[in-house]
Design a protein around this nucleic acid. Structure first.
Length: 412
DNA sequence: TCTGGGGTCCTAGGACCC
DNA sequence: TCTGGGGTCCTAGGACCC
């Protein structure tokens, strides 16, 4: 018989807005939107509780938010501040549990199993954690307590704002049954509508369904849905040791133009910039990637992705750029204005696809140059150095070498 | 009401190999 | 002389999360 797990889910309230209020206390009590200016192309990243009364919520287009609440204060946001405050929160959490997993910049899971002897009853501990974050960091949060991460997360959601909600062991079903299926993490708009077609609206209805029935309709997703409806951790929630994936599986950057464009030079300069951003972070992680993907969104919002996998993984902007330019020229329909461009690299590995002793001297040269500029950029900022002109025509002749036709090298 | 940016995971089909 | 089944890799698209 295993010990009942005790999981805390700590979720910061309107995190970006709350951080902005620390820097500008006059914002307190006002309708505030973080994410961009009122007439920009973009969406709401965080909404204060005051502005939510007007129907504004996150992920809503900024223009729409403006129409609902013209008197709101619109703030583009300060990602560095949010990251810094996120680290401060984490430091406090680490004092309460050796098992902390940050799920995103503003939420975390704490495994508090077995902490009772040391710290006291979970509800008291949560109270003291709540107080500590309030006093030390001056930020409000909500805490959910449950026997699984799923239950703890839903509980913290219902405790908002500025509250604590504990679901006692054995009470999971009673707690979950009356809730909308959309409360389940992983059930979004589409799944909710699909369930709705079968007359399923509440979590309790899912619990009563036969697993076989759901499997026949929704396959694997259906099976995990039944488990979730019973408050059990499945798939991404399941790892018992709550291991942290510290290395990313892909790295990407994308940008939406202020105005849709067909301008070749603007497009190419944008691709170069995106490649540089991706390349720099790739090297920052010490990773190499093999699959390079271009994302293209047209003015009508039709979006395509086109990918190519290299024979050897790379860390070099020049190699990435050559692939991206090729993918772009092969796929851009020149009549159509472009709304968004994106660059992604995946199939990441810690080791280079190349062995040192067959290292190409040209690659080595580029690698050194990039390391130097990375260092300068890290110290002095993004616009301090541009490799754009230098990269304009470099590596054109190398495209083939990295993508097609490399004769199989019999080395091993 | 015109819809960001950075991710993860899943599905489905085709190529290719045995 | 129309035809198998399993496994892996690759690509494209989409749901979902914060």
């Amino acid at each position: 018989m295993s010990v009942e797990r005790v999981i805390f889910h700590v979720d910061m309230d309107a995190f970006f807005v709350s951080v902005e209020e620390i820097f500008d206390p006059t914002l307190k009590g006002k309708p505030v939107v973080v994410g961009g200016l009122a007439h920009e192309r973009g969406v709401v990243a965080a909404a204060s509780y005051e502005v939510r009364k007007f129907g504004v919520h996150s992920a809503m287009p900024l223009r729409h938010a403006y129409r609902l609440c013209p008197q709101a204060v619109f703030i583009p946001g300060h990602p560095d501040r949010y990251r810094s405050y996120s680290r401060q929160v984490r430091a406090v959490l680490d004092d309460f549990s050796p098992q902390v997993k940050m799920a995103s910049i503003d939420e975390a899971y704490l495994d508090m199993t077995g902490s009772k002897r040391l710290l006291g009853p979970p509800l008291n501990v949560a109270n003291s954690l709540h107080e500590t974050i309030k006093e030390k960091i001056r930020l409000p949060c909500s805490i959910g307590i449950g026997t699984s991460r799923l239950v703890a997360k839903i509980a913290s959601d219902m405790a908002k704002p500025n509250g604590i909600l504990s679901v006692l062991p054995g009470a999971e079903d009673r707690f979950l049954a009356p809730l909308d299926v959309a409360r389940i993490p992983g059930v979004g708009k589409v799944s909710q509508e699909n369930l709705c077609k079968y007359g399923i609206h509440k979590i309790g209805q899912l619990t009563r369904l036969q697993e076989e029935h759901l499997r026949s309709i929704w396959g694997k997703a259906g099976v995990s849905l039944v488990a979730k409806s019973r408050g059990l951790d499945v798939d991404m929630w399941s790892s018992p040791g709550m291991s942290v994936p510290d290395k990313p599986k892909s790295i990407s950057h994308e940008t939406t133009f202020r105005d849709d464009t067909t301008k070749q030079d603007l497009i190419d300069a944008t691709l170069v910039k995106l490649v540089q951003l991706v390349g720099r972070r790739l090297r920052g992680y010490g990773l190499h990637g093999r699959t390079i993907q271009l994302k293209l969104r047209y003015a009508d919002f039709k979006t395509i992705t086109r990918a190519r996998t290299l024979i050897r993984s790379t860390q070099l902007d020049t190699v990435i750029l050559a692939s991206i330019r090729e993918l772009f020229s092969q796929n851009w329909n020149e009549d159509k204005a472009i709304r968004l461009l994106g660059v992604q690299i995946g199939s990441l590995e810690t080791t280079s696809g190349q062995l040192d002793w067959i290292d190409d001297p040209r690659d080595r040269k580029w690698k050194q140059a990039l390391e130097a500029t990375d260092a300068v950029r890290n110290r002095f900022g993004e616009s301090s150095i541009g490799l754009a002109s230098a990269m304009k025509n470099a590596h054109q002749e190398r495209v083939h070498e990295n993508t097609v036709d490399v004769p199989e090298r019999k080395l091993e």
